[in-house]
Design a binder for these strands. Structure first.
Lengths: 152, 152
DNA sequence: CCTAACAGTTAGGCAACCTAAATATCAAGC
DNA sequence: GCTTGATATTTAGGTTGCCTAACTGTTAGG
């Protein structure tokens, strides 16, 4: 039947998609393992760059619970890459602000990682790069769906 | 200059690609967190299904070191999902074989995860699904490049 | 034989996540 | 102007999955 065929195609695509996800996790591990700033720390520090990030907001954006964000923030603070300040409007809250060193660290971390990936992308054909570029927004959409659906 | 423009485009694509990778890691965590079989265990168990998998081969396929594979295998063995047997050809080696329960567990785990992803994919337009399907082989190629390049 | 390479396990450690509980502040109702 | 429930964060303690180093046993080449 038509619906079953459609379902099968969808399931097959889902299977391939999952395989790509699995590989991505592996690639991320490799990519980050030799860097001075871990992925978790880079993510948190990036949000501190805006200057008005609070711990809870960082946790939400990173997709982790608040204590996990606190943990990364403490590490970054000890490394001198950001500072925690009292929020003038709400003394329960803590504002997280990157230091100049933190800003430099983010720039370096991003640049190195981007150059590394760009090196790989450069070996592809233009058609392949186009295929990737076309799919990225859809990936984003999928990821957001999954994110919202899994929200407690 | 032309090369600089090309480089810039490549770097921009790399940046978006990295963002997608980051999200993928997050999505995988959500996807696996409510499942009885973890991603690491499902991966190892799948290879045991073929029947002729050895610990080193599983580690290589999972992209982890041998002790990490051993760890997952021991957990799976304790759960009754696979068995370790002496390799008749090489007594240093251990052959890892899934039990019937293990086979069922893989089928269930795969089916549930696939259905979950398929549910999301079903909300996309056909054009979007085509874009994903077109990009997956390229992702695979990229991931393999990164994998080989990062090999020690 | 003997020695180097190989397959696997064990031991110990680290990063990043989690939940539960403690602390402090805010804000709403009476 | 208190009390009480909600909110923001930290602390404490635990889990998972990965790693390296060191150990045991087996194989194979010279």
């Amino acid at each position: 039947m038509n619906t079953n065929q459609a379902d099968d195609a969808l399931l097959a695509l889902a299977q391939s998609f999952r395989e790509a996800l699995r590989q991505s996790v592996y690639v991320m591990r490799r990519l980050d393992s030799e860097e001075p700033l871990s992925a978790a720390q880079l993510g948190a520090l990036k949000m501190a760059l805006d200057g008005d990030a609070r711990v809870g907001g960082i946790a939400r954006n990173l997709g982790v619970k608040v204590p996990s964000a606190t943990e990364q923030i403490i590490k970054l603070e000890r490394a001198g890459l950001l500072q925690r300040e009292a929020d003038p409007d709400d003394s329960r809250a803590v504002r997280v602000v990157a230091t100049p060193e933190g800003r430099v660290a983010v720039e370096n971390a991003d640049r190195r990682r981007n150059e590394y990936i760009a090196g790989i992308l450069g070996t592809l054909s233009q058609a392949e790069r186009d295929a990737v570029a076309a799919a990225l927004p859809v990936f984003d959409k999928i990821n957001n769906s999954l994110q919202n659906q899994a929200r407690n």
